[in-house]
Nucleic acid binder design. Sequence first.
DNA 1: TAGATAGTGGGGGAAAGTGGGAAACTCGTC
DNA 2: GACGAGTTTCCCACTTTCCCCCACTATCTA
Lengths: 168, 168
Amino acid sequence: MGESGKLVLHLNHKAKSLNQFTGEYECRVDAKGRLRLPSALIRQIGGVNLNFTVNRGFEQHLIMYPKEVWERKTKEINQLNIYSQQHRQVIRYFYRGATEVQLDTADRVLIPKSLLEYAEISKEVMLFAYQDQIEIWSKERYKIMLEQEPEDFSSIADKVFGNNAADV
Amino acid sequence: MGESGKLVLHLNHKAKSLNQFTGEYECRVDAKGRLRLPSALIRQIGGVNLNFTVNRGFEQHLIMYPKEVWERKTKEINQLNIYSQQHRQVIRYFYRGATEVQLDTADRVLIPKSLLEYAEISKEVMLFAYQDQIEIWSKERYKIMLEQEPEDFSSIADKVFGNNAADV
DNA sequence: TAGATAGTGGGGGAAAGTGGGAAACTCGTC
DNA sequence: GACGAGTTTCCCACTTTCCCCCACTATCTA
């Protein structure tokens, strides 16, 4: 979809959650579609929180949110106007495929096949955790993603960091 | 060392921290991927601070920040709008594999394999500490980086210091 | 030369991660 | 309801990795 930045800017996008994940983890999905979370990540999550929502990300990867993060995000989305076609599109696009999952006794989640297919995940997976979410990428796609430098990185970096930081 | 072009890349007016590192250190990663920090550097760090965040730098090297320095840096990036494709790219480009590490009892950190690969580090490593960060280079790449400075340094310096010197 | 500090390397126990058998459950069909 | 195919999930066994600990070497200082 188009970015329609104006549309979504009403949303309170700023991440002010307690969850602040970090880390890049290499791991794998087994033949049954189970993904074990690295224990370093489990520790960050904090033990109490075993429920997650997985859905499609915007760039052919998956995103996993702790349940209460997901609930907060849906609240934001639900503020959009369902009677506007454009908004409906955004709403659907946001929800597309969201599935609740939970850790089994060996700290694994079962990822639905349709989602694995969408992200082209067969075995090797990279987890990329930042802010309040955990992105799930196939290893190949992750590599490709890293190699792409955003065209306007320096101009946005300018804005964020305030001066000519990324000029050279 | 000292006056490299790279130095200028990281100008960040907002970064005034207590941490102020200096130095160039030669050291090595052992067969298990552990990097021992030189004790001179440990002394600069100040003992209290055992947690770091490592991520990819922009020139095929790694950067290590004390945890709270990293957290300060992410604050600004986290203000971006995750629903904007452009901003998402920038956020990912900024985080690019950031992973928390900590010193073991022998003052070593275990660097994730994916990051070692990215920086082409096998054994010999150069640490380059300045401001509030520690750059980690493979010895070969560090040499190459140093060698290619002189040609364009003056023109870059012109650009950076010539008109925007006020900020610095 | 001895003693202290810095740096290197590896053994081994514990923890993390992997894989598969099989019981339990779901759902459609006869 | 009975049955079977497919899926989910618990459990256990096995492999791999991590990290504490100790021992050894190298370098520096008095």
